[in-house]
Structures are given as C-alpha cells and as structure tokens.
Design a protein around this nucleic acid. Structure first.
Length: 471
RNA sequence: GCUCCGAUGGUGUAGUCCGGCCAAUCAUAUUGCCCUCUCACGGCAAUGACCAGGGUUCGAAUCCCUGUCGGAGCACCA
C-alpha cells in the first residue's frame, strides 16, 4: 500500500488517517507500505521543501516507519519512458488546443483534430515537450480514451503539460514537462507493486481514468477504496493546510504546533500519543461518506494510555488568595497517584494562606461554608479566612463536604496553560517547578497537561508553560 | 446541466453482498448511582438509530422503484 502526500506543509489531523489505516493493515496482514510524495506540480501545488521531512516526522510521531520513500519528482524519466511507450501503442497524442476549446469539444463528445495525428509526429512533439521547447499551455499530451464516454470526466484526459516554473527541488529544477497526477500515480502504483489503494472521494474518477492506461499496457489495476472527508469537532480553525499556513503567516497562530491548530504537531506538543490518534482514526473505518471525528474519541484513547502512569498535581486557575487560620498542618502530603500508593506523596509546605479557584470558594452566607482541601484537611470559612477544623475525613465521606484543590500562596508556581481556546493562567503547587519539560501531569479536577518549559525573564519573573492535553 | 457515490442513536461503527438468528453490535459522548480526599481511573444502569414512501415476500436495516437530503467529479490541481 502507499501513502501519497502532497508535500505542501506539515500534516493536519485528517492526514493521520491514511498512515493509521494502512500502517495498521500492514501489521495485521504482514504487508508493505511506502510514502510517495506526489510532487508533480511545481506551480499551483508548489511543494514546500521543508514539508517532506515534516511529514516524515509526523509519520514517526504516529508510530510508523515506511518501508520505502519515493519522490515523484525523482522519477520523471520513468514517466517519460512510459509515455513514449503509450504513444507507440497509439494510446496518447499531443494536443495544442487551449483548455477552453478542448473542453467544449469534449463536452459535446467531439474529437479534436490532433487526435488523429500519426504516431511519428506525436513522438516528435512529445520529445520537444520534454526538451522544453514549448511554453506553458502550448502543448499537452493526452491519453486517448473514449471521446464519447458517458462520463465527460473520463474523455481524453491530460497526461503531461508544460510548466515554466522550475521545481523547488534542485534535483528536479530542470524539468519543464510534468505528468499529471493520474498519469504519474497510475504508473507508479503499478511499478511499485501496490495491491490496494485507499484514496479520497475527490479521486473517485481516477481509477476509471487510469484504467485506460492500464488497458494499453495490459496491467491489472489494484483494489481501490474511496473514503469521504473527515471533519473535526472542537476546533475554531479549519482543518486545511493552506488555511493554517495563512494564519501562521498572519501571526494569528504561533506555528504548526500552536494548540489552537488542528495539526499533528500541535497534538504532539499537548502530550497526546500518536497511538491514540491512530486508534481513533482506525475506528472511523473506510466508509465513502464524510465523517465527523470527535476529538473526544482521541482523548478517550489517550486517557487510556496515560492515566495510570501520570502523576497528580494541583493547579489553580486564576485564583483567589484566602488566609488560613486555626493552626493547620505545616505540610500537606497528597499522593502522586491515587491508585499507586507506592509512588509516594508530594510535599507541599502550606504556609499561612492558599489560592483557591473562585468557583470553589463558598459564599460567606452559604448554609455550609465547610471545605476540604485535598491532602490537607477540613476547613470552615469564617470572616474571610479558612479556619482549620478537622483532619477527620468523615466530614467528606458522611457529610458531603466538597473536596477542592488548592495551592499555597507561598512557593506557588506561576503557570500558563495553553489550550485550544486560548491561554489560561494560574498557579501550580511548588513541585511543578522541578518537573522536566515533556513530562505529563494530571492537574486534579482540571485535566491532563504536558509540561512544556520553565521560563524566566530578566525581571526574575519565572513562569512555567504547560499545554493542556484533555480532561 | 452531465456523470458518479452515499444515507444505522449526539459521534463513529457492526450487520447490507448470500432477506429470517436484528424488538439491531461495540466504542465514545451524555445522565444517574456506586467507588474514591479529583468532575481522572474502575464498576453498574439509563437515554438514544435502520432518511421517506411505495413494491416483492410468510418475513426487509438487508432486494427493487421513486423521492428527499448529503457528498464528489466534469482542471494544462493534488
């Protein structure tokens, strides 16, 4: 099988579907898969030189290593050879009609005069195309199909055209005569021994077009599956390489790994495992209709992978400072993970005031102003201060006192958490300053996050940056 | 306009080829309960779907027709 990306930028989430599915099939059926960059349009789909590696990186993140990698722009001579052969078989002709002219003839099912040229002339003109003797638009090579085919999309389609703009890859920059996708990909699929092709419904007619070429060469066409488009919920930003690229250029996104961008680099930075994405993608199946992928299914798969091994920490968003009273313990020792006592406990010096999320602070005139600070003890709000009341958990177990997370006012770590919907600031418990970048945590009652970096500027203002993973 | 393709709960999916075992599978989401010093994990439960109408048949999610809705192609893009 093959994955044939157009190297126009790093991958968005939707691109993960192809490798996810063919990679999974490879393992299941002991198959083979390659990546083939179909970069045969140096102009309107101009390849981005950095995208080749970016895509391979994304693939690695998903957990796959292709058995082989090709670039169509390295294989022009192969395409030329097959085109010559096709000409000799009487299956192609050079045509100098303008796109419009031809389109009109085609739509009324009429052949253009060039169709009946003798093979010798076609051969010469095609050689001239390869030598770059025509300008863009002057001459194309068409595959002779059936000019009266009931589906106009299949009538005598273009196989090669002239492009004046040099290819960005130096190795391919001298070529001017470029194959169209249907020709290039059709030839390559056979030459590379592809047995099964999966592609989008936008390429529904490709197999039928290419079948004409396969018939001339007496080749057998691979099995084909067409699938619909994937849409993602949860994102403001449209899942489209060009849109994301524009937003980055305009400075509205920080880059391909901005948490607001629906890209693989972004999910990676948020601490989501490639494996979880693959699982969600495989779950979509290969149906022809368009599908909506719920981010929650990626999150569910990821949570499954990380929950057991991820330690717990406190992070208070925004936060109101509340003084403590009544002589509470000097240190709190909540466990690193509730299901794994053996990992030990955190050591949080309490001090004389704490930060709480605004929502968690009881109204002063509420019926019950009691609160249990997780890992510390029971308190009651009195005159704007939290008075230590008990270390007896029964007030939680039997009297339904709310359990909340908190951080000490002293030693708290300023933290900025980057999310899909923008940044959230607040404070984390002291130990968070010592976590290694790339470590995952679960902020209790907030969600999972990946520690990205610890920043400190000249003014001594330290700030830890984390990327929100998911609830 | 011409040509293709599709339609199962909020989402995804199984079942459709070869009609009965489907008062429709599984996952996720939602809600409730249990567990729990988290609204995480785990356990239990509930809600929730065969696009519509005809036809064939003893019997239709499954076969046929029509309609509706949705998608795609008709590029010297991929």
């Amino acid at each position: 099988m093959r994955c044939a990306p157009n190297p126009n930028g790093p991958w968005h989430v939707g691109h993960a579907r192809m490798p996810a599915v063919i990679g999974t099939y490879r393992e299941r059926y002991d198959g083979w898969f390659c990546v083939r960059f179909d970069d045969t349009d140096p102009e309107t789909k101009r390849p981005d030189l950095e995208a080749y590696d970016a895509i391979l990186e994304d693939l690695e993140y998903l957990g796959f290593e292709p058995d082989a990698t090709y670039k169509a722009s390295d294989r022009l001579e192969t395409y030329y050879d097959h085109a010559r052969e096709l000409i000799d078989l009487g299956g192609a002709y050079t045509c100098s009609c303008s796109g419009e002219e031809f389109s009109e003839l085609k739509n009324s099912g009429e052949a253009c005069p060039h169709r009946e040229k003798d093979v010798e002339t076609v051969r010469e003109e095609f050689a001239a195309m390869i030598d770059g003797e025509y300008e863009s638009g002057e001459m194309v090579l068409r595959v002779k199909t059936d000019i009266e085919h009931k589906n106009p999309a299949l009538r005598d389609w273009v196989a090669f055209r002239m492009i004046d703009t040099p290819h960005p890859r130096e190795e391919a920059s001298e070529y001017r005569c470029w194959p169209m996708l249907d020709f290039q990909s059709g030839i390559d699929d056979h030459l590379l021994g592809i047995s099964h092709i999966i592609r989008g419904i936008d390429l529904q007619d490709s197999a039928k077009r290419q079948q004409f070429v396969y018939d001339y060469f007496d080749w057998e066409y691979p099995e084909v599956v067409h699938w619909g488009h994937v849409q993602l919920d949860d994102y403001e930003v449209k899942m489209s390489t060009s849109t994301i690229s524009e937003l980055i250029e305009r400075g509205e996104l920080d880059g391909w790994d901005d948490p607001r961008a629906p890209t693989l680099k972004s999910l990676r930075r948020r601490g989501i495992r490639g494996e979880a994405i693959v699982e969600a993608m495989v779950g979509l199946g290969t149906s022809t209709s368009d599908v909506d992928l719920a981010m929650s299914s990626i999150y569910a798969a990821n949570r499954d992978l990380i929950d057991e091994e991820t330690d717990r920490r406190f992070f208070v968003r925004d936060g109101n400072q509340v003084p403590l009273a009544g002589d509470p313990p000097a240190e709190a020792n909540p466990p690193l993970h509730p299901n794994h006592e053996e990992r030990g406990v955190r050591e949080i010096p309490v001090g004389d005031s704490v930060m709480l999320e605004a929502e968690d602070l009881p109204e002063p005139d509420a019926e019950d102003t009691r609160l249990w600070l997780k890992g510390l003890g029971g308190f009651e709000l009195e005159d704007g201060a939290l008075r230590y009341a008990t270390d007896d958990l029964d007030v939680v177990r039997e009297e339904g006192v709310d359990v909340v997370h908190w951080v000490p006012a002293d030693g708290r770590v300023p933290l900025r958490m980057r999310t899909i919907d923008g940044d959230v600031t607040g404070h984390a418990e002291p130990g968070v300053a010592d976590l290694e970048p790339d470590e995952l945590v679960q902020f209790e009652r907030v969600g999972f996050a990946r520690i990205d970096r610890h920043e400190s500027d000249e003014e001594d203002d330290a700030e830890t940056v984390a990327y929100y993973t998911h609830p």
